[in-house]
Simulated assay, not measured.
Amino acid sequence: MIQPHQHADQACSECTQRLGLIESGLRGVTPVRFNAAGWYRGELRREILRLRLNQDVSVLKAITFALQRTLPAKALLVPIPSWKTQKRANPLPALICRSLGRTTKTLLKRCRPTVGQHHLSRRQRLVNMKSAFAIHPDQQSWCVSATPTWIVDDILTSGATAQEALHTLKRAGLEVRGLICLGRTP
């Protein structure tokens, strides 16, 4: 279990080391520009999978502490919506947004079902995600904002989901800076 640091919402140094959290976040540009808390492996992988079940926001705050400092104060966060029914949906993108404490809008909606991607190749994932998102009709007015926007997901693997979400938001006129996530696959 992650223990918060005595002076902040960050993880203690022992937990930071055990989980492999990177002090200023893990950053990259491939397959999309991203900021992650660390590599999706070992203890961080196990903790992310646990969080899907127990949804502990205090643990998320500790994991996302470094990510919070990389975001502009006026950043707009857009969680990636799940393709599953709400009862079975992945709660982490919305919870990550909450833990980061920035303005969050559910701008994206799934406009068609997709298959689970864990057994698909990168090429198959790209085809699977093509045209999977649309702008939520109730949120059209937000799409003329000049606010720096970040999409949010729990894990960045091939980038197919992130790329499709990013393209959908950019076509709607938003300035999308990249993806915020908990883990990046090695």
Rank of each mutant, 00 (worst) to 15 (best):
L51N: 05
A66V: 03
P93G: 11
S82C: 09
L126Y: 08
E23S: 14
L53D: 11
S141H: 14
F65L: 01
L67V: 05
L53A: 13
V78R: 02
T168F: 07
C12N: 11
A165W: 07
E23A: 15
E47K: 13
S121W: 03
D153I: 01
P72M: 09
K87E: 15
I22S: 02
T114V: 08
L95C: 04
K109F: 04
D138H: 09
Q163Y: 05
S121P: 06
V59D: 02
P137T: 12
H118R: 12
R125F: 02
T103R: 15
L179G: 00
Q10T: 15
D154K: 05
W83V: 12
P72C: 12
P148N: 09
L60Y: 03
R102W: 12
C15D: 04
T104M: 15
A37C: 05
I96F: 10
L44I: 08
T157V: 06
Q55T: 06
L108D: 03
K130P: 04
R18F: 02
L100Y: 08
C97T: 06
T185N: 11
S158F: 05
S99L: 10
V176S: 02
V144Y: 13
S121D: 04
I155Y: 03
G28F: 00
V176Q: 11
L156D: 02
P31H: 14
D153N: 11
L51W: 07
R123W: 10
Y40T: 05
T103H: 12
A165T: 02
L51Q: 11
L21F: 05
I63C: 06
A134C: 08
I135K: 01
Q163I: 05
Y40K: 04
C143Q: 10
N90M: 09
R110L: 11
K87S: 13
H5W: 06
Q124M: 07
L60A: 01
R98H: 14
V78N: 01
Q139S: 13
R50M: 04
A134Y: 04
T168R: 07
Q6P: 14
R171W: 03
K61R: 15
V127E: 15
R123Q: 14
A134G: 10
R33Q: 10
S58I: 04
H136F: 05
V59T: 15
N90G: 09
G20P: 08
N35C: 13
Q3V: 15
C111L: 05
L120S: 05
V144N: 12
W83D: 09
R27T: 13
P186Q: 14
A75Q: 00
E47W: 03
T168W: 11
V115G: 07
T185Y: 05
I80F: 09
C97H: 02
R41D: 13
G25L: 01
K109Q: 11
